[in-house]
Design a protein around this nucleic acid. Structure first.
Length: 139
RNA sequence: GGAGAAGGGCAGACAGGCGCAGACGGUCGCACAAGGUCGCACUGAGGAAAGUCCGGACUCCGUGGGCAGGAUGCUCGCUAACGGCGAGGUGGCGUGAGCCAUGGAAGGGCCAUAGAAACGAAAACCGCCUGAAAGCUUAGGUUGUCUUAAGUGAGUAGGGCAAGGAUGGAAAGGUGAGGUAAGAGCUCACCAGCAGUGCAGUGAUACACUGGCUUGGUAACCCACAUCCGGAGCAAGGUCAAGCAGGGGUUGGGUCGCUCUACCCUCAUUCCCCGGGUAGGCCGCAUAGACAGAUGCCUGUCUAUUACAGGAUCCGGCUUAUAGCCCUUCUCCGUAU
RNA sequence: GUGGCUAUAGCUCAGUUGGAAGAGCGCCUGACUGUGGAUCAGGGUGCCGAGGGUUCAAAUCCCUCUAGCCACC
């Protein structure tokens, strides 16, 4: 019961987020479905392929090509994307399967870029997904 | 204080917050399954985790032998083993601390072009030394199809030499003296190198004496000798089980580049071939340990957002990448005492 | 991850005991033609993926890197 007190204290400042196992998109069949019937948005850094699932939460997968860089760089980008997904879950569209693909220009400027610049361009894409989906519903 | 040489170390730290993986303990769950959920506590990437260049462990392949093939290469030691490391020997470079290299008298191959000649005690372009003759001319003796002298031919042909020049990456010991027509290990002294003997050392070798005077380079060319190596690799391999539907074939199969001897299995549940369908879990697997694959972000302080960079069967090395520092030992130069 | 292969002209490829690098297509120049094509004649387009080493000499032999590709659940 002491625990709940602590967490509630934190909730005063900012929200407490988790990244659960079920929020990962792991099955091969799900991903091939995405490629077959998913829609996509893109900017200079990323492509996001998305598709509505029948759950009340979103699932995410990250794809980084081997050409992007060595293992260290690829790991770092994957962690940043995951961190962004976790901390800004209120801005992520709910009930979707997402596949984030890193593009070539990002690999060039990756050495000088920071976590904030990467998460900014990701959030921009998340918001565009929300907008486009609401538009199609209106039609 | 400056310029170097060798070796070793750190690889952001501390505090707080959010988050992740595993194990453990609760809890939900027919249940010691999968999965979810909770957690004041525990564990959670590197010096190179990398390249995959070596060596093992481990696993499967039927046993043994031979050939082929591969690796290493001064000596000794360390090691499970190694192509690794340590010490020593010899040679080269550097004022020095130190650094780099290491089989050429078993045999064969190759050394283009240039050069006389490229490993055969061979060869002769220029050169050095020696050095003709026929013929021709002139003069004389003599009148014969004769002969003498000088000149010319010619410093030519021929012979001797391996000193010097030229070529080349490299020219067959080097320097000096004697010697000779000119020269030459032709002779002598010293030096280098080779062989033998003695002595010291486990040994590579060192030292001394004696001898004949002397036969390049290339084994990251073949190779001799010595030592070692069977082949594949955790996607190895083992095991469990659901679903469906099994069918067919004949001397075939039993790791390998080749080969030999012996052996084993086998007319089908197991091996081989073909078709359909497809799905995997667990073990292997670890005091980090997954199977879409765990380390990230924020705040404060310290110069600090800051190098190279992330385990995938595990160890021992090597190699390559690397910010900013720190420590130890040593060398040379300058100044002061 | 494990085990392999390749890199030579703009493109596709040769290049065997180490001795000054070629073929085909394309390209450029000239001739023929009013112009173009076809045809004929001529031309090199090269730091042999990068850096070291062995050698008198390296596309070739040895070592280390860098790219690209393939096979095996």
């Amino acid at each position: 019961m002491e625990i709940s007190v602590i967490t509630s204290n934190i909730d005063d400042g900012r929200k407490r987020f988790k990244f659960r196992k079920r929020e990962r998109l792991k099955l091969r069949s799900d991903i091939s479905l995405l490629f077959e019937s998913g829609r996509s948005v893109q900017n200079e850094d990323f492509v996001i392929v998305y598709r509505k699932n029948r759950l009340d939460y979103s699932r995410i997968a990250v794809a980084v090509k081997r050409k992007f860089g060595k293992a260290n760089r690829r790991n770092k980008l994957r962690r940043w994307v995951r961190e962004c997904f976790r901390t800004s879950s209120d801005r992520v569209p709910k009930g979707y399967d997402l596949l984030v693909i890193a593009r070539k220009p990002l690999s060039v400027k990756f050495k000088t870029s920071t976590y904030w610049s990467v998460s900014k361009s990701l959030i921009e894409l998340f918001e565009r997904i929300i907008n486009e989906e609401s538009n199609t519903r209106n039609h």
